[in-house]
């Protein structure tokens, strides 16, 4: 299979469990850029969460006489084709998009990481089989698979995001496997085994903490991809279903009425781009931190 570009180098010697944790946190946050991006993201999440308190309108308050209004003092971002306040919808949409992203990435992590750790540590038949499964998933374009699953099972954010999660799992699988393989060569693993530690304990206590950092990097990048996937699916009408509002459904609505009003397309698009940009930057910052091992 074609090789991954993300070279998984382990620049620092892997350490046994406990000592790893605090070092990792400090190392990852060493760069200022990372801290800034993280702060902005957290702010974004908070704003989205407390959104309903900030605006006087409900997400489904329609005002059919005042549809597609440009921004004004009453509606800071104008209204959509149902007359709903776009600013309110932005908060709701961001919430849903973030939730969708979490769902997809959580699925990917739960599927990919344990399998990857085990495959890297043990290898053998399990390794071969899971490699094949992973490669198979990688050959399926995420959107096509998500479409197919949604088409078969039915729409809605949840099945769509589970499907996206499945397509993202191979990334986590590969990262975990790579790190597990290199960590397993170390002597402290040997000693753990010789005193009778079970595989689970070894993986959990000793291998996993070394994997955390690269996984967090993947997490950031994958989150961006998941958000894009959810938005695309909703844009096509196959993701979030009314009355749920996501940034994708907002874009769909705006695009359908593009010739009547041009403005509504901008808020959801800009917001998606912003969120993805933040997660990408976070991923970059974390990756730089991992690669340089915290050394400046």
């Amino acid at each position: 299979m074609t090789a991954t570009i993300e070279a998984q180098r382990a620049p620092e010697a892997p350490l046994p469990g406990g000592r790893r944790r605090s070092r990792t946190a400090r190392m990852l946050l060493a760069e200022r850029r990372t801290r800034v991006v993280l702060a902005v993201l957290i702010a974004l999440v908070l704003v989205a969460l407390i959104g309903p308190l900030l605006t006087p309108y409900g997400t489904n308050e329609q005002d059919l006489l005042g549809r597609l209004q440009p921004p004004s003092s009453e509606h800071w971002l104008g209204t959509d084709s149902f007359g709903r306040d776009i600013l309110t919808l932005v908060f709701a949409g961001t919430r849903l998009s973030l939730f969708a992203g979490c769902l997809a990435v959580a699925t990917a992590v739960l599927l990919g990481v344990p399998a990857g750790l085990l495959a890297g540590y043990r290898g053998g038949a399990f390794g071969v089989v899971s490699n094949t499964v992973s490669d198979t998933l990688l050959s399926l374009p995420p959107l096509i698979l998500a479409l197919a699953i949604v088409g078969a099972y039915g729409g809605g954010v949840v099945p769509a995001m589970l499907a996206v999660g499945v397509t993202l799992a191979p990334r986590f699988y590969r990262v975990s496997r790579g790190v597990a393989q290199s960590v397993s060569k170390n002597s402290f693993i040997e000693s753990a085994r010789s005193i009778g530690c079970t595989t689970g304990r070894i993986l959990g206590r000793h291998v996993f903490p070394n994997v955390v950092a690269p996984i967090l990097v993947q997490f950031s990048f994958s989150f961006g991809l998941a958000i894009i996937a959810e938005a695309s699916l909703s844009f096509l009408g196959l993701g979030a279903e009314p009355p749920a509002v996501s940034l994708g459904t907002m874009a769909r609505d705006a695009f359908t009425h593009i010739r009547e009003a041009a403005f509504p397309i901008f808020p959801p698009c800009i917001l998606i781009a912003l969120i993805v940009f933040l997660f990408s930057s976070l991923g970059d910052g974390l990756r730089d931190a991992v690669v340089s091992g915290g050394r400046r």
Binding site: G224, I228, A231, S232, F235, G248, A251, A254, F255, I258, R259, A262, I265, F266, C269, I272, A273, L274, V276, F277, S280, S281, D284
Partner: peptide, 23 residues
């Protein structure tokens, strides 16, 4: 390139259509 990474087709598509094709 960082910004470009964050511009999925479903963002660039409508924006390009709006600006270059409709307007």
């Amino acid at each position: 390139t960082s910004v470009s990474m964050a511009l999925p087709p479903f963002v660039t598509g409508p924006l390009l259509v709006t600006v270059l094709a409709v307007a």
